[in-house]
Design a protein around this nucleic acid. Structure first.
Length: 807
RNA sequence: GCCCGGAUGGUGGAAUUGGUAGACACAAGGGACUUAAAAUCCCUCGACCGCAAGGUCAUGCGAGUUCGAGUCUCGCUCUGGGCACCA
């Protein structure tokens, strides 16, 4: 026997698998689509944390292959976006060059792991043949009125010099560069994601959708549905009305003022009626200059200005109340105006305290508590509320809403925190938005047959900062004819955001070379939905929301057959550095997979990352522990010497070993299914340790063991499989079945307890009867001495486990 | 503030969902082999008491339910993540 030499065998089998197309079994009856969130290739390459998810997906893919599924397991590159562009700016090279290099680095690294990808299906979002269909989807959205131009103020990153969507912010800062984001009004393309809010929320409960609660609740939160009422209030002193939204209509008799956001159009409209317009104007322009971050920071200190000269009228009691403009009310949510009830809302309470406004209680707690001098935000029973007094909050809300609807001054209303998707970026390295602006016809779609609108070469990639992309400088690209009227037209120069290509890429793997459609209908129906999707939790409210939105749209236009794209979603837990911090160049604690593979081999690294702990948990890397995985593989390798096959003897059955093997078949299969790779491997270790203790191991047992370990350590399993004399790949084999009879223990250790404390244990037959167990227990010296002269009150017997004597 | 998690030896973690707490590994210590080292193999390894048999305590803290709680209930503490002036 030669020594276990991962370097040699790993290269050998990677070549073999690729040449033989071992994984391309696409004509089986059952299908399984295993997908990873595709990487953004960067020049730096991978650290050991990146491949963890890919290893898990590959393990499951190989397991499914062995179970007789056709497995689709592709990989590709999400390559548009800022890092490549910033590199291009710095080095004055085309981002294409940088992207190609990065892809090569990544691909080489991934190949070292021996993943079972079908590289013939490789895609790249920057490939015109790919983004042609990204543009096609945009045109469809435009056609259905779901892509529109807007001039609302949006998040603007002054450093990246581009507009951003809400999903692109972190703590009010640019997610990319950390700069504080400003509000800047500018022309931009927006996708009407809010039209899908209800479905994006409700379909999270789709039967069979197997998503972790963590991710589901994050999406629910982000969508932020709330139910309430919207109603209008007359403004006395001006012929205007203000609409407000509230989820607590029951507190309406406690309203003592109202507030509009600084962006509210009513301010401009009532200009003539306002005694202190100048003061208001100063406040409005000041608050507009505040960054999102500053506005949040100001939380503690509420600011605002009364709009003198006008009053609003509470429709429920006709009361005339003051109106304020204050930036604690957000322009973009609800109606941008609220009724203020300081007694029952914390923000209104703070504001009223500061401006010395009346605080009037209208709801009393239905539990015993003195609320005077405090804000009370729970439901309760109404007080000081006219005919509604005495009613419970919920009933009162319903009655009041009905009254509003009857008077035709209000309606029941659902609101969402989620906004429409700001879809244009004033940058170079993205898909061109396929629109032509015509003076006569307005924005006109580029005809489908002219797709893709290719990204032209430019001399300068630097963003202009003016709200125009660098593309605007290429006049012979920009200037074109209007497809509608044939007159002069100008191309849209904004590009799509990073998230565009990734919002539908999983469909393209199914049919990557189709030039007639983004995906062939029949093939789509064959493969969708994705059965397993693995990736980082940081995408819960970005990529996963966008992709679901596009998928639902594609479903509506008949391009796909399923409502939801991803059936099972699992998030991968981070691998931290050995010091417990995040791996980062900044800390100098990055571990490179190339070095680990060089030292221990890809199989040991794969086994270690699956063994290190629960898959979704963040765990620190430990190079020491990789040794353990390596030793395990060596031990498994050595077992080949114990097979009778190698000795030419007659095969001998070993009941104990056979039973353990069948237990292992059961456990490993179930554990892979449930993403409990750590315990699956531990069981394989137990079996290996048992093999080690035997003189000889039946070749049949060893062969089955090799199949069990093959999803985790494919190279080694394949090599040993060949050594057993097989000509075909181990991945053409069938996952073994366990015999339920064999996994039953014949003998168990019965636990003898007195009052729940263990006093003795006995080897007994597994199917021991209660009577027999009692007899044995009462005969035990240790039990006897513990019972002594006390009375036995009852005896509890748990079959196959324990007997407990209560005294 | 709101939502979702987590807390078990020196370390990573197991525990069939209420039934032997610490599987499997890593580290550490001791031993075998060796001129020596590496590799490998064997033993010890939660704490305390005891020569031993054995006993007591122990799953973040405090109560409770139960014959029996790491697991269930209530109340806390710490901690990771997400959202956040969303009316």
């Amino acid at each position: 026997m030669n020594k276990y030499n991962p370097k040699e065998i790993e290269k050998k089998w990677q070549k073999f698998w690729l040449e033989k197309g071992t994984y391309k079994n696409y004509d089986r009856e059952k299908k399984f689509y295993a997908l990873d969130m595709f990487p953004y290739p960067s020049g730096a390459g991978l650290h050991v944390g990146h491949p963890k998810g890919y290893i898990a997906t590959d393990t499951v893919a190989r397991f499914k292959m062995l179970q007789g599924y056709s497995v689709l397991h592709p990989m590709g590159w999400d390559a548009f976006g800022l890092p490549a562009e910033n590199f291009a700016i710095k080095n004055k090279t085309n981002p294409n060059v940088f992207t190609a290099k990065s892809v090569a680095v990544f691909k080489k690294q991934l190949e070292m792991f021996g993943f079972s990808y079908d590289w013939d299906r490789e895609i790249n979002t920057t490939d015109p043949e790919f983004y042609r269909w990204t543009q096609w989807i945009f045109l469809k959205l435009f056609e259905k009125g779901l892509a529109y131009e807007s001039n609302e103020p949006i998040n603007w990153c002054p450093s990246c010099k581009t507009g951003l969507s809400n999903e692109d912010l972190e703590d009010g800062k640019c997610e990319r560069c950390g700069s504080e984001v400003e509000q800047k009004p500018m022309r931009q393309w927006v996708l009407k994601m809010t039209d899908y809010a209800d479905r994006l929320l409700n379909d999270l409960d789709t039967e069979g959708l197997d998503w972790e609660e963590m991710i589901v609740s994050q999406q629910r939160n982000w969508i932020g549905r709330s139910e309430g009422a919207q109603f209008e209030m007359e403004v006395s002193g001006a012929k205007e009305k203000i609409e407000v939204y509230t989820t607590r209509l029951d507190t309406v008799f406690g309203m003592t003022y109202a507030v509009v956001a600084p962006e509210h159009p009513i301010i401009e409209k009532m200009k003539g009626n306002l005694e202190n317009y100048a003061e208001i104007e100063v406040y409005v322009s000041k608050s507009q200059k505040k960054t999102a971050f500053e506005r949040v920071e100001m939380q503690k200190e509420k600011t605002g200005v009364e709009m003198k000269g006008v009053k609003i009228i509470n429709p429920f009691n006709g009361e005339k109340l003051p109106l304020f403009v204050a930036d604690y009310v957000i322009g973009g949510y609800g109606t941008g105006a609220v009724m203020a009830v300081p007694a029952h809302d914390e923000r209104d309470w703070e504001f009223a305290k500061k401006f010395d406004l009346e605080i009037r209680q209208s709801v009393a707690p239905d539990y015993n508590e003195n609320i005077s001098g405090k804000v009370f935000t729970d439901d309760g029973a109404l007080v000081n509320s006219g005919e509604y007094s005495g009613m419970k909050s919920q009933i009162a809300s319903e009655k009041m809403t009905a009254w509003l609807e009857e008077k035709k001054i209000g309606v029941k209303k659902v609101n969402y925190k989620m906004r429409d998707w700001v879809f244009s970026r004033q940058r170079y390295w993205g898909e061109p938005i396929p629109i032509i602006h015509c003076e006569k016809c307005g924005p006109v779609a580029v005809p489908e047959e002219e797709l893709p609108v290719k990204l032209p070469e430019v001399e300068n990639y630097e963003p202009t900062g003016t709200g125009e992309s660098p593309l605007s400088a290429i006049t012979d690209w920009v200037n074109t004819t209007c497809p509608k009227c044939g007159g002069k037209g100008k191309r849209e120069t904004n590009t799509m955001p990073q998230w565009a290509g990734s919002s539908w890429y999983y469909l393209r793997y199914i049919d990557p070379k189709n030039s007639k459609a983004l995906v062939d209908k029949e093939k789509e129906e064959e493969w969708m939905p994705v059965d397993l999707y693995v990736g980082g939790a940081e995408h819960a409210t970005r990529h996963l929301l966008y992709a679901r939105f596009w998928h639902k749209f594609l479903f509506d236009i008949g391009a796909v057959s399923t409502k939801e794209p991803f059936k099972k979603l699992v998030h991968v837990g981070l691998i931290l550095a050995e010091d417990g911090r995040k791996m980062s160049k900044r800390w100098g604690n990055v571990i490179n997979p190339d070095e680990v593979i060089e030292k221990f081999g890809a199989d040991a690294m794969r086994v270690y990352e699956m063994f290190m702990g629960p898959f979704t948990q963040s765990i620190a890397w430990s190079t020491n522990s990789v040794t353990g995985a390596y030793r395990f593989l060596e031990k498994a390798w050595r077992t080949q010497l114990k097979t009778q096959n190698s000795k030419g003897n007659i095969e001998i059955e070993n009941q104990k070993l056979k039973s353990l093997l069948h237990k292992t078949i059961k456990k490993v299969g179930e554990d892979i299914e449930n993403f409990r790779f750590n315990t699956a491997i531990s069981q394989l270790m137990i079996l290996t340790n048992a093999f080690e203790k035997e003189e000889t191991v039946n070749t049949k047992y060893y062969a089955e063991f090799l199949i069990l370990i093959s999803p985790f350590a494919p190279h080694m399993a394949e090599e040993l499989w060949e050594k057993l004399g097989h000509k075909e790949s181990i991945f053409k084999e069938t996952w073994p079945e366990y015999d339920p009879e064999l996994i039953k223990d014949e003998e168990i250790e019965l636990i003898l307890q007195v009052n729940g404390k263990i006093r003795d244990r006995m080897k007994v037959p597994a199917d021991i009867s209660e009577e027999e167990a009692k007899r044995i227990a009462l005969a035990s010296e240790k039990i006897k001495s513990n019972i002594a002269d006390k009375d036995i009150r009852k005896i509890i017997f748990v079959k196959g486990r324990l007997i407990n004597i209560v005294i």
